[in-house]
Amino acid sequence: MENHTDKNKKAKEEVAVEQKIKRRNFISFSTFFVLGGAAFGGWKWLYNSPEETAGITAGARKPLRRALNKTELFFRKFYSNNHHVKTYPKAMAAKKVRVNSDIGMDDEGFKPENWTLSVVKSKGDVLKITMDEIKALPKTELIFSFKCVEGWDQIQHWAGVKFSDFIDHFKLNEHAKMDYIGMETPNGEYYVGLESESALHPQTLLAYEMNDQPIAIEHGAPLRLIIPVKYGIKNLKRIGTISFSNKRPKDYWAEQGYDYYSGL
């Protein structure tokens, strides 16, 4: 008799375990598939999310642009003009410097010797600066690893005037207190926007020499931007105009879906 109840009890226990297994399986697998489905739905939503309204930035999915901007704000906390880009000995600089783009430099008959730089101080107040005036300022050399957003980099040797020296000399300090600096080619076809802080970084140059020679046409003669705290896309060749603004100036690659800031 006792044996019989024992068996009964055991059978009951086994049924209870089976039920428990079934119940837990059901709960965990339902949760798994519901969450998995939600994740997949979320991905579909993100992947098919509408493109941002074209403005200063364009070409990216709306939520991804938001994320790029937020991420910039986070990493900006670590930004400092005391962080310098690594420099190299002259011997390591590339003799054959890579040319990756000629956007904004296809004007017919452009002559570097006739060029002047326009600095827009305010509407209608444009400062014209010649190459001689720029060359009269202290020359700074920089041998650093130029980094392209594509992933390649190359050690290059540039020389010119420090952008901060340029600002001081031409008494543009009040203007440079604005949040952004914009630069464009003389024909206005390539343009970049920079946070003033990055532009005033001690290694940012308005360069007129490469490998101790005047810059060649394809490298941005007569004057180009070298801003090592940014990817190559911000290193505008053949600067025509410099302007100041508290709003983000237009930026060629930010209109093509790239991060507006593209800082390093």
Partner: peptide, 13 residues
């Protein structure tokens, strides 16, 4: 490339 970077720098978080 631009698309890749935008996704990469969101999902890295």
């Amino acid at each position: 490339l631009a698309e890749g970077m935008a996704f990469h720098f969101l999902f890295m978080w």
